[in-house]
Design a binder for these strands. Structure first.
Lengths: 174, 174
DNA sequence: CCTATCATGTAATCCGTTACATGATTAT
DNA sequence: ATAATCATGTAACGGATTACATGATAGG
């Protein structure tokens, strides 16, 4: 029982390395960008720093190239897999998420809703379209997890579009 | 034009101090807890640290008690108000928010949806009820901003309840 | 009076943001 | 060859998280 405390970023790294069967930080970066990054992004400097920490903790093994690109390839250790499994099976004691929407913050603090709503409506419509395209490309044969979270994303983008478009309507002639 | 770069936390402090007409960090803490903190919380240590920074930057004035509780009372300076106004009037160039829901992360990474969904459905229902109670208490005479953001919160909690309850249904017998 | 909770901060550490830097490929 | 972009990191800084600490006030 070593007491390393792991962050969501840690589990993203562990989980994707499991799915990919190991890989470099750059590989992770790509994998995040097109999947989990849609609802939980990780800056690329962290994608290089975090596997290092996990290696120190014994959850990853690393092989470093000496020549060429000198890249480092990480793989899950048995302990890393155990930790990942334990996290998946643990009771979900996470706190509820917050919206943390900077546009809502401006609105709350008294910004003019008109321009704000117009900009946000467009942006959310685009993201919604992007998610729906991704869903259309999905043939349903892969893991369930990513598919479910995509559904969640679509649902939330839907209400965002409705919220901002209604707000825009109430303010576009005033 | 001094180049202090302000964070969302900064604007929360500035905006609430404007609304409250000045106050101590503890007063801010309470004000955040019952309003903007619902979608953008700030840890209490930051609520003590941030006004200090803003004072250094000349955006707040501070009066420190010498006896008793030795508390510090902050007020907006003219420059602070100008900065707050500029932010409210600026084009909304903020990036879209991310869900960053730890339960979605577990789901994505392969956790069993059943227990997860049951727990989250309950939690979101409670928060939804809490928001709706707050809405019922609102007599509509106050600022629009908080009311609009409350609407946004209700809408998002609604889809969260639907998402997790549907997921729970699909998994509660198997 | 004693204890619990309110009120008010400070400190250590860690993580995220941003910027810097540079070697490898690919395209022209 | 040269330029562009891909790939792979490092470093500095600041803000967030977490823990520690302690003086006031209220309730019993």
């Amino acid at each position: 029982m070593n007491g390393v405390s792991l962050s969501p970023t840690s589990y993203i790294v562990l989980g994707l390395l499991e799915r990919l069967g190991g890989g470099t930080s750059y590989k992770l970066k790509q994998a995040i960008a097109e999947s989990v990054g849609n609802f939980w992004s990780v800056p690329h400097s962290q994608i290089y720093a975090e596997p290092d920490r996990l290696e120190q903790a014994g959850l990853l093994g690393a092989e470093r190239e000496s020549g060429g690109r000198r890249r480092t390839r990480y793989t899950l250790t048995a302990e890393g897999l155990a930790v990942l499994d334990a996290w998946r099976e643990a009771p979900a004691d996470d706190g509820l998420p917050e919206l943390r929407d900077a546009a809502l913050l401006r609105l709350f603090m008294g910004a003019d809703p008109g321009p704000l709503a117009a900009v946000r409506e467009r942006a959310h419509r685009e993201r919604l379209a992007h998610y729906e395209a991704a869903k259309a490309r999905d043939d349903g044969t892969g893991d369930r997890g990513p598919w479910e979270t995509l559904e969640a994303g679509i649902a939330h983008e839907g209400v965002s579009v409705r919220f901002w478009s209604q707000l825009a309507e109430r303010h576009h002639h005033g």
